[in-house]
Amino acid sequence: MTAFSAATLYPAELLELMESGKGIRVIDVRTPGEFDTVHIPGAYNVPLDLLREHRDEFCAHLDEDVVLMCRSGRRAVQAEEDLRAAGLINVHLLDGGMLGWEGEGLPVNRGASRWDLERQVRLVAGSIVFGSVLASVAVPKLKWLAAGIGGGLTFAALSNTCAMGMVLSKLPYNRSASCDAQSVVARLVAAKTVSAERN
């Protein structure tokens, strides 16, 4: 049963619902590295690619309200589309994502500092474009590499997807924390059991 009907929640609203003890599961779809750097206390880390790969398994254990979040909201929107397509209707989004939550000074758990995925994409894409333009003085055909990256970034913006981000998310730097479907499902089941015992 849905405890609230808003498709999007503001950070303060989510905090109030979490503190009220209502059955809410906050699912953070950022990479494990981003999650380890900073996350909302009590959130479950289910990276977007893992969520997509094990969508039906997760949906079977998400009978309470689910609030999806990422850094700023883009990946959470993709996760919402995937879960709704699988028939999950109790899905909501955190407005502004982790940036919005931190911007309001709400409680967080902090770990080792790492670059978020969007910053990594900007670094890699910018470096490739800059390097290929400089190198095109000696090898003129390298300018097409810069054009390809520019076209890829344009497509990423129009389609709200990012192939480079998906590739970077699989690097060891972003995968250092353990996050697998079985452990997340086990935590969801345990939380459901505790919640049922309280009621």
Score class of each variant (00 low, 15 high):
V189Y: 08
T193E: 10
A157M: 12
L123T: 06
L48I: 15
G148A: 15
G100A: 08
F155G: 09
G105M: 13
V139S: 14
M18T: 13
R74A: 13
F4T: 01
H39C: 09
T8N: 11
V167R: 09
M69K: 11
V29K: 07
S195Y: 11
E64P: 09
C179G: 00
R122N: 11
R55T: 08
R75W: 02
I24H: 00
R110Q: 15
S127F: 08
G21D: 08
A177H: 10
A76Q: 10
G150F: 02
A147N: 07
R74T: 12
Q78V: 03
L134Q: 08
G87H: 12
A86Y: 01
L14N: 01
T31M: 06
L68T: 01
S113G: 13
A112D: 15
L48Q: 04
V67S: 07
S132R: 07
L17C: 02
A181S: 13
S72H: 10
A190T: 13
S127H: 09
A60Y: 05
H39W: 07
G148R: 12
R75F: 03
I89G: 11
R30L: 03
E197D: 14
V38P: 01
R55F: 03
G126Q: 07
V167Y: 05
C162M: 05
A138H: 13
V184W: 01
S183N: 06
F130A: 15
L17D: 05
S132Q: 01
G33T: 03
V139Q: 15
P11I: 05
V46I: 15
R119K: 13
C59D: 05
L145T: 10
L15R: 12
R25Y: 13
R52L: 04
V124E: 06
D36P: 00
L168M: 07
G33A: 11
A12D: 15
A85Q: 14
F58C: 00
A138S: 14
A76F: 09
V167I: 11
M164Y: 00
M164N: 03
S72F: 07
D95F: 02
E64W: 06
I128N: 14
V108N: 03
T154N: 11
S176I: 12
G73K: 03
F35V: 01
D63I: 07
T37S: 15
E118Y: 06
L153N: 04
P41K: 08
V67D: 08
S195A: 13
S113D: 14
V184L: 14
R198W: 10
L117W: 06
S169H: 05
A191P: 02
L9I: 06
C59T: 15
L83N: 05
N45C: 12
L123S: 09
Y44A: 13
I128R: 15
L106P: 07
D28V: 00
R30C: 01
M98P: 00
S132V: 02
E102T: 11
A181I: 02
H54Q: 13
L15E: 10
R110L: 15
L9C: 07
W144M: 12
M69Y: 05
G73P: 01
E64N: 08
W144P: 02
A125G: 04
S20C: 05
T193F: 05
N160K: 15
W144V: 03
S72R: 10
V124N: 06
A76Y: 06
P41N: 04
